[in-house]
Structures are given as C-alpha cells and as structure tokens.
Amino acid sequence: MVPVHIVLMGVSGSGKSQLAAELQSRTGFTGATAEELQPAEVRAKMAGGGFVSPDDRLPWAYAIRDWLTDQARQGHSTVVVSLGLGRRARDIFRQAEGFVFFVHVHGTEDVIVERIRQREGVAPDDAMREVLRQQYAELERLRADEPGVRLDASRPPEVLADAALASLTVAERAWEVDSESV
C-alpha cells in the first residue's frame, strides 16, 4: 500500500491543528506541524517580526517534502499542518513519495477572526489582522489537478475529519486507477 500524506492548508487560525489532531487520532498517521519542520532561516525571519514571503518559504516547502518522503520510505502515512497557501509550495509537496492529498480549511476573514477571538479570548490585534490579509492575498485555491478538498472552517473538527477522510478515500481510489492505467 502506498503511503498517504494529508497536508492541511489554510490561513492562520483556520483550525488546521485541531483537525490534524482529530485525523491523527482516527488514522494513526504520523504527524508534524510546519513549525517543527521549519528551517532555521525561516525561523529567524519570523522571529524578527517580518512577513515571510512565498519565496522565503521555499526552503520550508522543500523541508516538508523531504520529511514526507522520509516518512513514506519508512512506510508511514502522515498528517502535516502547513500554510501551503500557494500552488508553488503545493507542487513541491506533491514531489514527495506517496499520495499527497490537500485539505484546505477555509473561512472568510470574519469567521477566522471570530475563531481567533474564541481561542485566545481577545480579538486579533492590527498586526495579526495584517498577517491574515497577507495570507489571504497569497492564497491560491486548489486546482482540478491537485487532489484535495476545501472544507468550511466554521464546522467542528469531527465533522471536518469525516469530510476529509471521505474525500481522501475517493481521491485515493481515483489516483490508484490513474496509476494503473499508465
């Protein structure tokens, strides 16, 4: 059986971490967060308070891809949390060994701001709102050639996990059929 990699994407505060925990609990897949896989140069820029551009994040995308491949070679399927906002990063992730499936946890800015308010007990400050705006500007929706699903961030993690796993089952079967016909 080919290892499966579920890559969770979405803006900050969309609920990716809660969904990752639910998916790991249900599947037993190995998990990681983008922060755990973050290269030193990206960490340094973020620590300095600067916005990390898509180009700045390329080493991060390659680090995630390499981790996915390493896990696949060990026979492990994975769940990884990543912003993965742009097609360029997702193309890099798809170079990993195994079947890469994207779950885009999506919400409007109002929904995400309310999620952050509930989680942290206070409204996001101006700096956080600016980061969200930059992330939304960078966000590229999944395209037809990218196996994945877009889910509503306002739904509970259990509901999102149900939808993600059902979509994964369909996409994985289609991928297997395509692979057999080549």
Rank of each mutant, 00 (worst) to 15 (best):
Arg26Ser: 07
Ala171Met: 04
Ala20Val: 03
Ala171Val: 02
Ile6Lys: 04
Glu36Thr: 14
Ala89Leu: 10
Gln95Glu: 15
Val4Thr: 15
Ala96Thr: 04
Gln118Pro: 06
Glu140Arg: 10
Met46Cys: 06
Arg73Cys: 12
Val122Cys: 07
Leu58Thr: 14
Ser53Trp: 02
Gly31Asp: 05
Val131Met: 13
Ser77Gly: 13
Ala32Asp: 12
Arg173Pro: 00
Leu165Ser: 11
Ala153Cys: 05
Ser167Glu: 14
Glu138Leu: 14
Leu19Trp: 09
Gly98Val: 01
Pro59Asp: 07
Val81Thr: 15
Val113Met: 00
Arg119Ala: 12
Arg57His: 10
Asp126Ser: 14
Ala89Phe: 09
Ala63Pro: 11
Asp55His: 02
Trp67Asn: 02
Leu85Asn: 08
Gly28Arg: 03
Thr69Arg: 04
Trp67Val: 01
Glu114Lys: 10
Asp125Met: 09
Phe51Tyr: 15
Gly148Ser: 08
Val79Ile: 11
Asp55Val: 11
Val4Asn: 06
Arg119Glu: 12
Gly50Val: 11
Arg129Asn: 09
Phe101Leu: 02
Leu83Cys: 14
Ala164Leu: 04
Leu168Trp: 11
Ala161Glu: 07
Gly31Ala: 15
Arg129Asp: 08
Gly75Trp: 04
Phe51Gln: 05
Ala40Ile: 13
Val7Cys: 03
Ser181Trp: 12
Val170Met: 07
Asp66Arg: 11
Ala63Lys: 08
His76Ser: 10
His76Tyr: 09
Asp91Pro: 02
Val79Met: 00
Gly13Phe: 09
Phe102Thr: 07
Ala166Leu: 13
Glu35Tyr: 10
Arg115Met: 05
Ser82Asn: 13
Val11Thr: 13
Leu68Phe: 05
Arg94Asn: 04
Tyr62Lys: 00
Val7Glu: 04
Pro156Gly: 09
His106Ile: 00
Val159Glu: 15
Asp152Ala: 12
Gly15Ile: 08
Ala163Arg: 10
Thr27Ile: 07
Ala127Leu: 12
Ile6Met: 10
Ser14Pro: 11
Ser14Gln: 08
Leu68Ala: 03
Thr78Gln: 05
Gly15Val: 07
Ala127Ile: 13
Val42Ile: 14
Val149Pro: 02
Ser14Arg: 07
Glu180Val: 09
Ser53Ala: 09
Ala44Leu: 09
Thr78Leu: 01
Thr78Trp: 04
Phe29Met: 02
Ile92Cys: 09
Leu168Thr: 06
Trp67His: 06
Ser154Arg: 13
Val111Gln: 15
Ala137Thr: 01
Ala166Phe: 06
Val52Glu: 04
Met128Val: 14
Arg150Val: 14
Pro156Met: 04
Gly49Arg: 01
Leu68His: 02
Ala123Cys: 03
Pro124Phe: 05
Asp55Glu: 15
Asp178Tyr: 00
Gln71Leu: 00
Gly15Arg: 08
Arg43Asn: 06
Ala63Glu: 12
Gln18Gly: 14
Ser17Leu: 03
Pro156Leu: 02
Gly98Leu: 01
Arg119Gly: 12
Arg143Val: 13
Asp66Asn: 15
Leu139Lys: 08
Ala153Asn: 08
